[in-house]
């Protein structure tokens, strides 16, 4: 009986122990369930947050559309920039052409003034003076001369000069050297090496025949240019030829006028003598 009691007591103690363990297990399970619930809730919240930050399918389409639009605009921008470059190049071209036309306009205006001045008088010396002024102010000559042809004796003689004395100039026979040859052929002469040119009265740096149509009446010879004029501009060559034509006509007319004036004066004197 005592043994039974003892066994009964032991069994009851073990049952109590088991109950205690079971209770602890139940509490632990409860805690795990709570933790599980809390974590689930947190996962849900994170998923929602991610949903908000990550675009959905329709948002992706919008992005693709916008990207396409950006590409189009980039293309458009590139085309506009190309067009701007083209317009800038055109503008530059127009500006250069404007400068060219302006220069040509200035040259023509100057030529108009020069020819107007040349034909403004019939005084031979005044005409020669005007030619000298034109060569200084329009062409930039420093030492130069006007030589006229003695048609009877076939030689050229200095009549007016600037920067040198007329007497210094040699008489040139028609056909001799550069001056004589240019007077004979009627062609313009420009020395090849302008910088290396050394002054020589028989070999000028420039020789321009004074022509009325094909008839040469003299030449303009240039021996040096102004310090600031290192070379001839394109327009100068044109200017030389045009001026030479006007100068020749002016010289020829004034010479004829002077001669006729002289003859008239002689005849008038003779008539006066006869009628007295």
């Amino acid at each position: 009986m005592a043994v039974n009691d003892e066994e009964h007591r032991r069994a009851s103690s073990r049952a109590e122990e088991f109950l205690q363990v079971f209770k602890k297990g139940a509490e632990f399970t409860q805690e795990l369930l709570k933790e599980n619930e809390r974590l689930r809730f947190q996962v849900l919240r994170l998923q929602e947050a991610q949903k908000k930050s990550t675009p959905a399918g329709s948002d992706n389409e919008e992005i693709v559309r916008l990207q396409r639009r950006i590409d189009e605009l980039e293309q458009e921008k590139s085309e506009i920039l190309d067009r701007i470059k083209e317009v800038e190049a055109e503008n530059l071209d127009f500006a250069n052409r404007y400068v060219d036309i302006e220069n040509e306009n200035n040259m023509l205006a100057n030529l108009y003034i020069a020819s107007y001045q040349l034909h403004s008088t019939l005084d031979f010396n005044e005409v020669l003076q005007i030619i000298l002024e034109i060569i200084i102010n329009l062409i930039g000559g420093e030492q130069f001369a006007i030589m006229l042809l003695d048609e009877k004796n076939k030689y050229l003689k200095g009549f007016a000069a600037e920067g040198l004395e007329v007497d210094e100039l040699p008489e040139i026979t028609l056909g001799d050297g550069i001056i004589g040859t240019m007077a004979q052929t009627g062609e313009n002469y420009f020395v090849d090496d302008l910088e290396g040119y050394q002054k020589d009265f028989t070999n000028p740096m420039v020789c321009i025949p004074l022509k009325i149509k094909e008839h040469v009446i003299g030449v303009i010879v240039i021996y040096s240019l102004l310090e600031q004029k290192s070379k001839f501009a394109e327009v100068d060559y044109e200017l030389f030829t045009l001026l030479a034509g006007h100068a020749a006509t002016a010289i020829f007319s004034s010479k004829l006028y002077s001669e006729s004036e002289r003859k008239l004066s002689t005849i008038q004197g003779f008539i006066d003598l006869m009628t007295k």
Partner: peptide
């Protein structure tokens, strides 16, 4: 002093 140059300047 040069009438030609004067005219050129005036014209300009």
């Amino acid at each position: 002093d040069s009438p030609t140059m004067r005219q050129l300047i005036v014209f300009a």
